[in-house]
Design a protein around this nucleic acid. Sequence first.
DNA 1: CGGTAATCGAGACGGTACGTCTAGTCTTAAA
DNA 2: TTTAAGACTAGACGTACCGTCTCGATTACCG
Lengths: 195, 195, 195, 195
Amino acid sequence: MQPPKQPTGRPRETRVDAAIRDAVRELVPRVGYAGLTMDAIAATAGIGKAAIYRRHTSRGELVFSVLVHGRKAQPLPDTGTLTGDLTALANLILGIFSDPVTAAATPGLLADLQQQPDIAARFQETFIAEERAQITALLERAHQRGELPVPADPALVHAAVLGTAYAWLFLLAQPPTPALASRIAALAEAAARGD
Amino acid sequence: MQPPKQPTGRPRETRVDAAIRDAVRELVPRVGYAGLTMDAIAATAGIGKAAIYRRHTSRGELVFSVLVHGRKAQPLPDTGTLTGDLTALANLILGIFSDPVTAAATPGLLADLQQQPDIAARFQETFIAEERAQITALLERAHQRGELPVPADPALVHAAVLGTAYAWLFLLAQPPTPALASRIAALAEAAARGD
Amino acid sequence: MQPPKQPTGRPRETRVDAAIRDAVRELVPRVGYAGLTMDAIAATAGIGKAAIYRRHTSRGELVFSVLVHGRKAQPLPDTGTLTGDLTALANLILGIFSDPVTAAATPGLLADLQQQPDIAARFQETFIAEERAQITALLERAHQRGELPVPADPALVHAAVLGTAYAWLFLLAQPPTPALASRIAALAEAAARGD
Amino acid sequence: MQPPKQPTGRPRETRVDAAIRDAVRELVPRVGYAGLTMDAIAATAGIGKAAIYRRHTSRGELVFSVLVHGRKAQPLPDTGTLTGDLTALANLILGIFSDPVTAAATPGLLADLQQQPDIAARFQETFIAEERAQITALLERAHQRGELPVPADPALVHAAVLGTAYAWLFLLAQPPTPALASRIAALAEAAARGD
DNA sequence: CGGTAATCGAGACGGTACGTCTAGTCTTAAA
DNA sequence: TTTAAGACTAGACGTACCGTCTCGATTACCG
C-alpha cells in the first residue's frame, strides 16, 4: 500500500467534475450516445478538453463513470416475502432503464464494453456485483423463511430480471406497463424455485 | 400495386453483394463492430466504396442487412410439449448469440438502432416479428393441447427468453452452460402460465 | 499505311458528336473548365458516357478537340501593309480569346497541356502551327515588299502578339480596349524589325 | 482600427507552415499541379490535413500562398537606361518562370484564378501590383531622363514583357534562348515609346 | 512573500474515418 | 457495332472526431 501521495500544485476544482457530469447528462438524451463528442461536452461544460482527459481516460470511461459509477446505490427494502422483494427489484431496474439519460446511453455503453475489457471489469465489479449482492441476499432470506426449499442460483435470477426488463424496453421496444414489474417478479420467482 | 419498373443500364453484380457480406463476416470478429470501417470493408471485399453506398445508407444498415436481414429463417420443430418447444427456442436464440460474428456485432448493432428509427423498424419487422410469430404459434399449440388453461402473453415470453439469454451472455458476461437452455425454457414456461 | 478498315455493325451517329460539342459549349461558360464533368456532359447531351469515350480518350482531349481542333481556320486578309496584317492578326487572336467559351476554357486547357504531352503536341501541330504559318507568310510578304530589310523571326512575333493579348486578358485581367489590337500590332512590328 | 484580438489557446506552429511550404515545393515539380493532392502534401509534410485546412481554404489558395505570396520581392536595379532596366525586368520574369516549381505550377494556378475571385484579387494585389509598380517607376525614370518624350502606358509594357515571356515558354513551349531577354526588352521599349 | 507545481480555458496538433464525387471502364438490352 | 443507362474500381475531397500537447493565466501549498 503506497502512501497517499501528498498533492502539490493547484488542486482540482470540484466545479469541473460537476460541469462534466451535467454536460453529459444534458447532451446524451439530446444527441444520443453515438453523437456525444468530447468537444461538445467540453463546450457545454465550459471547460477545456484537457480537464476532461485529466479525469477520464477515454470517452467510454467518461460516460461509464458519469452514468454507472456515479450512481448512488439504491438499497432494496426487505418486504418480508420473496414476491415482494423481487417486485421491488424489478421496479428498481425498470426505473433505472426508464431514466431518459440511462435509456439513451445504455445500449451504446454496452457496445463499448465489448471492446474495452477494463471498463467491462469495472462494470462487473460495481453495477453487476452490487445487484448480485442484493439478489443473493433476498434469495437467502427467502431460503431462511422456507419459501425456497433449495438454494436458488442468483445468476439465473439476475439474468431473468435484468434481461427481461432490458429486452422488453430495448429489444422489443415496448413501453413498460403497470403490471410489468410484478410479471417479471413472477417469472424470476419461478427461476428461483427452479421449477 | 406498383409497376415492375423496367431496369435499364448495367445491372448490379451479385458478386459485389457477396463480397461485401463476406468481408463484413470476416472483419467483425477480428476488429469488432466499433473497429469496422467502410474503407476496410471495401478493401477486404476488393470493391469501391461507392458500390457499398449504392446498396447501404450507413454502416449500421449495412451490418444489419448482412447479419440480420440476410439470415435465413430457422424453423422451430414441433416437439409436442410446451417445455420441448421452449427449450428448442432457447437453444436457437443461444445459438444465434453464440455465433462469433453475431456475438461481436450485436451490442453495437443494438446501440445503432437507438439512433436510426428506420433500421429499428426493419429490425422489429424481420427478426423480432419472425421470432414473435414462432412464439405465438407454439403458445397456441400448447393452449390447444390444454397445457395452458388461459392464453399466454407472447410478448412476455419473448422478452423472457430473448432477454435472459442476452443478459447471461452480454450483461453478466457468463459462458453458456449446458443446462442454460432448459432453465431459460422453464422460466419462460412460468411466464407463459402466468403464475 | 493500313487499309481503311471496312467498318461493320451500326455506324456512329453524327448526332452524338454534335450533342457532345453543344453540351461542352453550353457547360464551360456556366461551370468553368474545372467544374466540367463527364457525367454532366453526358447528361446535358442526353447520351451515355461510353459514347464520349468512344470518341475521345480523356476529358482534356475532349475539350481540346471541341474547342481548339474543332475550330474552323480563319484566314487572314492580305491588307498590303505589315501594320495592317499584324492588326488583323491581333484582332483575330483577341476575338478568339474574347469568345465566352474559349475565355472560360483556355487557362484550364493550357494547364492540362503541361501534363499531357500528346495533347500538347496536337495543340502545337494545329492551333500554333496554323498561326505560325500565317505569321511566317505575312512577314515574308513584308520582306518582299521591302518593309523588312532583314527576315524577321516568326517565333518572336508570334510570342509577342499571342502573349501580349493573353497577358492583357488573363494575367492582368483587363478588359480589351478599342486601341488594343493596333498597339499590339505596333509592338509586334517592332519585334519584326528587330530594333 | 480594430482591437489587436488577444490570441488564446495554443498558438500555431511555424514548423507546420514551413513543412507545408517545403512539401508543396517538393511535390509540385514531381507530380505537377494537377497531381498535387492534399493527402500527399499532408503525408509528405508529416502533418494532419486539418492543419492545412486551418491555414488555407483550398488547394489553389495553398499553392498561391506558398509560391506567389510567399515569394520575397526581388528589387530591380536602376541601370540608368530604359533598355537596361527593361532587360533586367525581362530577365527577372524569365527567371521566375524558369524555376522548376513555378514552371510546373503556373498554368494550373492561372486556371484556378478564373474560378476563385478572391485568390485572383490577391494575385492582382501582390504579384501583379508589385511588378506594375516596378514598371511604372522605370518608365518614369526614363521619362525624366528624356528617353521617353511622352509618358508610356505601364499596362501595355507590362502585358508585353509578361505575356511574351509566358507565351514563349508555355504556349509555344520553346526553350529560352540567351538573347530572349534583350529581344523582349526591345519590343517592350517599342511599346513604351508607343511607335 | 516569493517560488514551485499542478490546475484552468482555449485551441492547435497528428491521425484516421467519414460520406461524396469524379474519371475512365465495363456490362446490360435494344436498335 | 452502336446506343442510353448506369454499375464498376480507384482514389481525392473537405469535415469531423479522438486523444495529446502547448500556450498564458491562475491558484494553492511550501519554505
